[in-house]
Design a protein around this nucleic acid. Structure first.
Lengths: 197, 197
DNA sequence: ATAGTATTTGACATGACGTCAAGAACGTGG
DNA sequence: CCACGTTCTTGACGTCATGTCAAATACTAT
């Protein structure tokens, strides 16, 4: 076996960063190859296609991100948990300079086209899966809140509402880029759901 | 002057439909030209570029859509107005078969990339403008609700929250495509904001 | 050492966007 | 009524993207 001349993980990091900044369709393999100091052909050999490279790179991100969501939602009062979750969400979609928005939401809206047979459908499932898992974690936080008398209502509906707001924040971020506004909406939402204080 | 051999508006409709279905970057001018029975060159002559064609086509949609939002939010109790607004939102993003999602949200997330100088920034402003106008209309509905004693709270914050939820619905639609779930979230949001009935 | 195998590399095919010059169709002024 | 100019159309071209392939290359394991 001839040894690979580049680091698999380095390329994945570089690729994800480019995809995040410029979108999947807006990023060419030549860009990534140049940035990584690799020949384009080597990327095809290692990953198969641009789509496959994206999926692999995104999976790394998704698993990391899910971990931090779990951590944010894992301890403290329900109010603390939700606040931490919103903080994490906003921090994520305002990361980078200039900020890059939410990779999941951006990817989902960009790739989940209608005709989608090939990648589009695979990618859609991946994004949808992440959103579903996150919703599950939020729902669990609400359920525990019910047990502790911090919340009375349907945990599933409440979780869906919270996650919907976070996805909406990802959209508003692209539209306005006003972080203070995003925080205001987040605070308002928590107050609305849990009562004013 | 040689007369144009195709209908300007027909092409805009066809183009917007394609952009909506497959995304801006996912649609080629050849596709549109074939669909419209026009030579690709004619499109360049008439509109200048793919981006310009998209902007023109989108502007038509935006102005129509803003009109229907205005209508939905224009009369009845505040609860009726918000419900009509959510109904319109969901109907819009579930239109077509298969459903095509929200063109504004999809376009915004697809095009509002970071490097964005040229089109990206122009398009971003256009999308952001529509979202801002809609927010204004919702805010006005809340303000009138305050005057009539149907609501007490900050209209601006409330409007931002509502619009955030509608943008979030556009994202969840792509992820899950479950219309009943979207309606449930919408109903829950109205109840949350206006009190349980 | 050598044979085998995976990686690299460069050439190629296809299809996208966009430009350009030449041709075609129509109004208009003599 | 005819030639002229303006606009639209058409096809060829350049560039850059994705993806494939065969040949060259550099290790590993026998």
């Amino acid at each position: 076996m001839r040894p690979r001349e580049f680091d698999h993980d380095d390329v994945l990091r570089i690729a994800f960063d480019q995809f995040w900044r410029k979108g999947v369709r807006g990023t060419s393999l030549s860009d990534i190859a140049r940035d990584a100091g690799v020949q384009r052909g080597s990327l095809y050999n290692a990953f198969g296609s641009k789509e496959a490279l994206f999926l692999t790179a995104y999976e790394r991100y998704a698993s990391d991100y899910l971990g931090s969501v779990q951590k944010a939602l894992g301890s403290g009062t329900l109010r603390k948990r939700l606040t931490a979750f919103f903080d994490l969400t906003i921090k994520n979609l305002r990361s980078g300079s200039p900020p890059r928005g939410c990779p999941t939401t951006r990817g989902l809206m960009e790739l989940a086209s209608v005709e989608g047979e090939g990648l589009d459908e695979t990618a859609r499932k991946m994004f949808a899966d992440l959103v579903a898992r996150i919703t599950g974690l939020v729902q669990q936080a609400f359920s525990e809140g019910v047990e502790r008398g911090e919340f009375n209502g349907d945990p599933e509906t409440a979780a869906l509402h919270i996650v919907t707001v976070t996805r909406g924040l990802a959209v508003l971020e692209r539209a306005f880029g006003d972080e203070a506004q995003l925080r205001k909406i987040a605070r308002h939402t928590v107050d609305l759901v849990l009562g004013n204080r």
